[in-house]
Design a protein around this nucleic acid. Sequence first.
DNA 1: ACAAATTTTTAGACAAAACTAAAAATTTGT
DNA 2: ACAAATTTTTAGTTTTGTCTAAAAATTTGT
Lengths: 218, 218
Amino acid sequence: MTLSEEDYIKAIYHLGKGNNTTVSTNAVAEKMDTKPSSVTDMVKKLSEKGVVNYKKYKGVSLTEYGQKLALTLVRKHRLWEVFLVEKLDFSWDEVHEVAEQLEHIKSEKLIDRLDKHLGFPQVDPHGDPIPSKKGEFKKAIKKLLNEVPIGISGICVGVKDSSGPFLKFLDKNKIALGDTITVLDKEEFDGSLHIQIQGRKIHISNQIATNLFLKITE
Amino acid sequence: MTLSEEDYIKAIYHLGKGNNTTVSTNAVAEKMDTKPSSVTDMVKKLSEKGVVNYKKYKGVSLTEYGQKLALTLVRKHRLWEVFLVEKLDFSWDEVHEVAEQLEHIKSEKLIDRLDKHLGFPQVDPHGDPIPSKKGEFKKAIKKLLNEVPIGISGICVGVKDSSGPFLKFLDKNKIALGDTITVLDKEEFDGSLHIQIQGRKIHISNQIATNLFLKITE
DNA sequence: ACAAATTTTTAGACAAAACTAAAAATTTGT
DNA sequence: ACAAATTTTTAGTTTTGTCTAAAAATTTGT
Ligand SMILES: [Mn+2]
Ligand SMILES: [Mn+2]
Ligand SMILES: [Mn+2]
Ligand SMILES: [Mn+2]
């Protein structure tokens, strides 16, 4: 597959939300930042190659083979993201663009060895699960911190309240996007939470917990 | 620069032996495994861009700017080779093809961080020097082991005698291409050498030393 | 020096991946 | 149901990088 074909496959995969829904030409065009007519051309070619199912005017979905390719690309993308953050000290928000290039490097051995070098990570720096070599992986779901059960870990991926005071609070308490958070205990009385964040144990109010999104893989 | 343009720049650089000799269209075509007519087209384009000096029928050489680009590419290529060997346990003869792809990844930060992660290596797994960020580097020369002065190190890059018995000898004594060898002492009497190879200290005859090539950077 | 051999360039074509403009199909709203 | 709006496809170009065949320039050998 060419670099361009691979990016289309990934786009169709992500738009299909992993469960391989049929997606529209326009949706793909928007995601890829290209024109619908270009998508039609590419989708015809991918159909010829057995990568997608395509019926004129009826949208496009991945074949079994296409899904296999998509999962391999997602695996490569996320492993490289882990590498950039863990080994090269990139921050979680700097990695995407570079991984977007690295995911296209062709070498199965490279990916196997990278996986090993990284200690076979299960999730990427954004909390998204990394498919195994065979294409198996857990689904990730986004939850408010106060809804996360005791004992479960996740990665902080967003805030509900993005007001200045709240963001300032997070900064002061060293809570940042990309941090790994584990719910240790909950207080019945006021709904406050004891959590572990990046190794540290802290106590936060229910109000804070209802404004932080965690990505957890089950 | 596109991937293709970058590969042409590298080819012109390597054919010019680093001292920026003018090279012929045919030579570039052979190196790139393409046709001379394709080279003419590309060289015209690179000339437009100020990357090469080109006069019809008179060959091509890199401009100052082109040399800068070439050195950056060589730096990236060799750093990735070090990464593959040092961090991912590739052997020295498996890295070239993958580095040929990785060298085109666009991110200055990536290369800076990779350099740091690898401990600012001076040479790649083939004994070739790695240009600094500013494009400075030492020249590498190939010498027979018996001509290497005491105290100097190099990387084993080839054999003069490639007969079965000699190769078998090397194998038995665990001397392999890619090994780092330091000359510790020489015996006047018989020309034999005390060397350190991959950490081990051994004693080898003059006959062995006259059949092993070392790449040394000065 | 000059014909022959070789190298290099030109001309014309093609495939990949994109675009614009226009046509066709589908969906939506009343 | 059917006209209008929207989506999607088609047709025709463009750019990049390649190719073949033929023409032009240079180099070589006598
Ligand atoms: Mn990509
Ligand atoms: Mn990610
Ligand atoms: Mn390359
Ligand atoms: Mn090398």
